[in-house]
C-alpha cells in the first residue's frame, strides 16, 4: 500500500486530531448503475443516430495500433467526415480504442480511463492481441482476452489494421450503435463484480477505488 494512501492521523488548525482515510475521503466509491435509454423508441433511435454520427475517440494510444490512428485525422483519410473526433479527456470521449497488445500496467490505466467515460461508451479492440493474446500468447505481462476485463463492442482484425480498416471498423460500430446493440456500459454495470474480480485477479497492486468516477 503506497504511503500516501495509508490511513493517517491529522491535526486540524483548531488542534483537533482526526483520522484521514484517503480511499474513503478522496474517492467516490459508488458502483456504476445500469442506465436505460429514453423510454420512447423513436427518441432512443434518434439519440443512437446522433451518437453514431459523433464518435469522440479518447486520445489514449494503448498499444502499437495507436500509430495507425493518427493518419485518420490527416487529409488522406479524414475521419472528420464521419463525425469522428479526438477528445483529450475521457469525460468527453465515447469510444476507447485498445490498439494492440494490452500490458497489465496499461490495462490498469485503460480501466480507469474507461470508467471515467460516460454511459453509453464503446470499446473497440484492434488486432488479434486483444482477442486471444496474438503473438504475445505466452507473455507474462500482457492480457490475453480483452473482453474479460472490458466490455468490447467490436474487434478490427489486422496486425495492425490500416486506417482504411479502421474507418471500415468504425462504420460497423456505427451500425451497431444505430441498432442499439452497443450497450457495453450497461453490460459493465450489470456484471460489474465479475469484471472487477477478473481485473483484480490480474492487477495485483490495485490501489484505486473499485469504480473510478
Amino acid at each position: 500500500m503506497k504511503p500516501e494512501l495509508m490511513k493517517r492521523m491529522v491535526k486540524g488548525p483548531d488542534g483537533v486530531e482526526f483520522e484521514v482515510e484517503p480511499m474513503r475521503d478522496y474517492y467516490c466509491d459508488a458502483p456504476p448503475t445500469v442506465q436505460h435509454g429514453a423510454y420512447i423508441k423513436i427518441v432512443e433511435d434518434f439519440f443512437n443516430w446522433a451518437r453514431s454520427q459523433s464518435l469522440w475517440i479518447l486520445g489514449f494510444g494503448t498499444g502499437c495500433g495507436a500509430i495507425e490512428m493518427r493518419p485518420l485525422m490527416t487529409p488522406r483519410f479524414d475521419a472528420y467526415r464521419y463525425g469522428i473526433q479526438w477528445r483529450p479527456t475521457p469525460r468527453q470521449a465515447n469510444l476507447l480504442v485498445i490498439s494492440g497488445y494490452l500490458s497489465v500496467k496499461t490495462l490498469k490505466r485503460a480501466i480507469r480511463a474507461y470508467e471515467q467515460m460516460q454511459n453509453p461508451k464503446y470499446v473497440v479492440g484492434l488486432g488479434s492481441c486483444t482477442i486471444n493474446g496474438g503473438m504475445y500468447w505466452d507473455s507474462y505481462n500482457t492480457i490475453k482476452c480483452l473482453d474479460q476485463y472490458l466490455p468490447v463492442d467490436l474487434y478490427i482484425t489486422g496486425c495492425m489494421p490500416r486506417p482504411e480498416a479502421l474507418l471500415a471498423g468504425f462504420e460497423d460500430l456505427k451500425k451497431l450503435i444505430r441498432a442499439g446493440q452497443a450497450e457495453g456500459a450497461n453490460q459493465y454495470a450489470e456484471r460489474f463484480d465479475w469484471y472487477k474480480a477478473n481485473q483484480k485477479q490480474v492487477i495485483h497492486d490495485w490501489d484505486m477505488p473499485d469504480y473510478n468516477w
Partner: peptide
Amino acid sequence: LEGWNDIPPYRRDFDTLKYANDSFAQRAGR
C-alpha cells in the same frame, strides 16, 4: 513490472507459458 509477485521473469526457470495460462483468462478454441 507493477505488483509482480512471482520469481524474476527473465530467469530461465520461470515458465512464462504456464504463468500466462494460469494468471490470464484465455479464450477457448484457439
